[in-house]
Simulated scan of single mutants.
Amino acid sequence: MKPSANIQRRFLLGAMALALLGALAWVALRTGPLAPVNVQTTQVTQGRVSPEVFGIGQVEARRSWMVGPTTPGRVLAVKVDVGDVVAPGQALAEMDAVDLDQRLAALDASLARGQSGRAAAQAQLADAQAKHALAQANLKRNEDLARQNFISAGALEARTQEMASANAGLQSAMANLDATAQDINRIRAERAALAEQRGSLKLVAPAAAIVSSRDAEAGSTVVAGQAVVKLIDPSSLWVKLRVDQGRSAGLAPGLVARIALRSRPGESFAGKVARVEPLADAVTEERLAQVAFDVVPPGISVGEMAEVTLQLQPTEEGLLLPNAALQSFEGSSGVWLLKDGALTFVALQVGANSLDGMVQVIPVEADALSHGDTVVMYSAKALSADTRIQVVEQLQGAAK
């Protein structure tokens, strides 16, 4: 082989080796472990945050009634059905009276007998009073005669004894009359109680309401306090809201609410927080509140799920960032500031945030961050101050 051909071959091989090394270096620097980290950036803005509290609840009735008997018994009839609108005092159901009517008749007879006994006692009292008056007059007459020595001492003692007997008879008649009056009062009280019990067997509506449940049928035996019919006031519907305790700061009565019902997708109803429960749910770690509708929507159901958004008071003017831009570095929360191609971690104090992902921040060091600065929002890998980066418009898989 000629010397010139060997030189050409060696030169060609060297060129190919250099090209291969260059390609490997380019791959390592662009797509390998030494490649810059792709980041997506955002701008620091100035403004106010309108914090919102979100929670899920269910529709309940503020005013409801469980209508049932006050004594055990058997249901005689149920006169309403689920969904019926009832007026105050309207009959809902009736319990079987069993022997109450007969007991009332027996007490009426006892009352009549007591009144007859009272009449007899009054007659006995009148007779005792007449005897007492006669004995008193005889005693006075004999006392006058005894002073004039017209009668003996024995005769006067007999009249005195007659007077004492008349006094005892009068007292007995008066006591007997009082006893008959007490018996009559007792019978009347027993009859009134039994009549009240008889009247309670007719179950009536305490207010204008809708029948929400029919829990017993004719022939069923129920105990005292068991509901036969359940009622709700349709104008008192509200949402029992559950809010995560960690996101419940600012929850208070009077907050404006937007209510989205599961049965009305795409619609929103206005309301307000009527009450915040003093006791939280320790198991689910949630706070409870009652949210009332400004106008109760027609046709909603008790127990229906609802999503509620509460509007809190806007904050003061401050620096705003997307919540996604916040990173944790060396135990501090903050953002990576991009200035002149270099990364600097700026520690921040996080303030209020809104449901759209914006959060109000305050730099730990004054003037470390200002309006218009560029910060990293998403990065393909964890960052450090000496990380090489490449800014892209959109990271693959990053939220839009």
Rank of each mutant, 00 (worst) to 15 (best):
L100Q: 09
V243W: 00
V223G: 11
V296Y: 03
L369C: 10
V391N: 00
A352I: 07
A189P: 02
P3T: 09
N149S: 10
P33N: 15
W238H: 15
D183A: 15
N38S: 15
D101H: 11
F329P: 00
G397L: 10
A227T: 06
A205F: 07
V361K: 00
F293C: 06
K140N: 01
K140Y: 05
F54R: 14
L261V: 05
Q290G: 09
E393S: 12
T284Y: 10
L312W: 08
D367N: 10
L319R: 12
R141T: 07
V49M: 08
G341S: 09
F293I: 06
G357C: 06
V391P: 02
L20G: 06
A35W: 00
W336V: 03
I389K: 02
A181M: 15
V256I: 13
V239Q: 12
Q58D: 10
L156D: 02
L111W: 14
A19D: 09
Q102H: 13
S64L: 01
Q43N: 11
T309Q: 07
K140R: 10
P72K: 00
A153L: 07
R198Q: 07
V222E: 06
E304V: 05
A270Y: 01
V361P: 08
T374F: 03
P234A: 00
R188D: 13
V392K: 09
R103Q: 15
M305F: 08
I259E: 11
L288E: 04
